[in-house]
Amino acid sequence: MQWLTVFNKELLESWRNFKWIWVPLVFILLAITDPLTTYYLPQILEATGGLPEGATFEMPEPPPTEVFMMSVSQLNLIGVLIIALISMGTISGERKSGVAELILVKPIAYHSYVTAKWAAYTLLIWVSTFIALLASWYYVNLLFGEVSAGSFLRTVFFYGLWMTFILTISIFMNTFSKTAGLVLFFTIALVIALNLLSSVFAHVVEWSPALISSHLRNALISGELPSALWGSAGTAVLFSIILLAAAAYTLKHKEIS
């Protein structure tokens, strides 16, 4: 009941400050840029006159799954930044401005406050990711060839988990600092560190959440689901739960403002 109150308020807030419009739009743009530019690259080069007279230009056409994965990589780069940006002030901002003083003297459980906010952003991210990858999938099928619906759904599912994991890191950081900029910095720093460590020690930490997208690539190409993908997804879920619990705990035991 209280949980739903905060959840609905968050959705309304995201709607009123247009997050529900611009986040999906930016995600779609990110996702369809690569399939379109790859397909139209010859024409673009021709139009801009980048080739000398008489030269012919043969581009090997990449396989559809490869192009679809390009979209995912794009989201991975800038999508992460966007997630951190939209969520960096959700709790820290309320604490800094003093709204939290009014909200948290009401008899609301801290874990409801944290998880309701988390859920509202998770919904936004999943919807945005789904629409963006749907657009990308449509263009890939149209311009390059078939990627199966199963592969598409699988990508949305596993990739959504990775996005959710990033969001959870950001929510957790929110309870640590009142400064939104610091929340952003720590979130991005942690994600970059995770990415780096995971790719350097890829064989040791096979189940690292940061490896979800690289496992996904293998899964798309081979058409099978490697167990490491499930492992990575499992750790992402597990760490998300731990981080959420830790966020509620920190908020409760910290001075609210």
Partner: peptide, 14 residues
């Protein structure tokens, strides 16, 4: 907190 109403010195709202 169910039995207390509180107004801070400088209230801020959404």
């Amino acid at each position: 907190r169910s039995h207390i109403g509180y107004l801070p010195q400088h209230p801020h709202f959404h």
